[in-house]
Amino acid sequence: MKENLSIDRIKDWLEEVKDPEIPVLSLNDLGVITGIDIQDSGKVIVNMTPTFAGCPAMDVMKSDVEEVLKKRDIEDFEVHLSFETQWNSNMISEKGRLALKEFGLAPPPKHNLIVDIDLIEHAKCPNCSSENTDMKSPFGPALCRSLHYCNNCQQAFEQFKPL
């Protein structure tokens, strides 16, 4: 086994892998890394779960993870994408939520796994924090975003959808 190799270390390396559609959000913060394991043989296993079944960015994220492992001289590894753990937007970290807001995307509201129209319609404006907003469409420029309008600062904005 490589010296000093630890799960925390691998997790640190994965900080540099960002969501290609939201470049301020690392995969750790997005919550798609569901498990890291170092086997007795030294083989590294990284498990990931897709945000959306049809998300075209998942394959990019997977190969980015593979690239990071290769760059750190890990030769024996496997990266798996599976639905064993189902991603939901509560899995986005606090640091990730802040990054989204600074990026100009309203972070998804935390929910009790029941996503209904009330939850989605009342997004908080990432620019002025007003809650006086309207949903324009539950579909936006990427599968994970919806379109909103802030009546207070009169700006259109997007929300990372609660799922």
Binding site: F52, A53, G54, C55, P56, S137, F139, L143, L147
Partner: peptide, 19 residues
Amino acid sequence: EEDIAFSSMAQDKVGQSWQ
């Protein structure tokens, strides 16, 4: 918005079929 909605639903559905 409707153009985007149907395009997004297309992407979801084709992605789901692939799975």
